[in-house]
Amino acid sequence: MTDNARAEAVVLRGVSKFFGTFQALKNINLTVREGERIVVCGPSGSGKSTMIRCINRLEAHQEGSIHVLGTELGDDLKNIDAIRREVGMVFQQFNLFPHLTVLENCTLAPRLVLRMSEADAEKEAMRYLERVRIPEQAAKYPGQLSGGQQQRVAIARALCMTPRIMLFDEPTSALDPEMISEVLDVMVELANSGMTMICVTHEMGFARKVADRMVFMAEGEIVESNDPKSFFEQPKSERTKQFLSQILSH
């Protein structure tokens, strides 16, 4: 099957986003096909977070259109709910629910949104906690775990909803260096399982290993979009070269 034959998972056409008068996204065009792994990078404030947050409507765009799995995102709450059920998200700050145990964090949405029974939800949750290699922590509270463990729980929590698309917003930036790889390992494994992924990250080793396509953003625009080999070895624009030399120098 060629890339073009695969169904479109996320399509952004001419998307613009304003915070008051400040334009955070400028005419963004991006198509992500099912099973594709996109890595988004760019300097701070370039609109990376804003772009992926528009995909599950944590931010509303003002111009252009966003289609997720064939459904258009607009003010229609039914569409928003339907899309959020299919799109998982992992945040920089983990955002686990501190008053719930690890297991409860994982079973809450499946029970309430998918109306799973408690027993089924727990069985599923344990399966995903095993997959992120943390089943022994199920009864603990998030506050009792290390950052790397919390982020793996956050990934398991998102996977428990059996999403078809996963969004990652700098999942390793808040972690101590020695914990980054345990999270990246889980993400690599997820990528190898065929999950559609859009990752904002500056972990270029991870990007080389799993990305089908690199997207470079600056000042609210997509400056360059290319396969990793060309992206790293023959960047086309000056901005990209400059950014890469900065980020790869250390």
Partner: peptide, 11 residues
């Protein structure tokens, strides 16, 4: 972030 995480889960 608590509300965002809950929204992202579809709650």
């Amino acid at each position: 972030g608590q509300l965002e995480a809950a929204k992202a889960l579809g709650l």
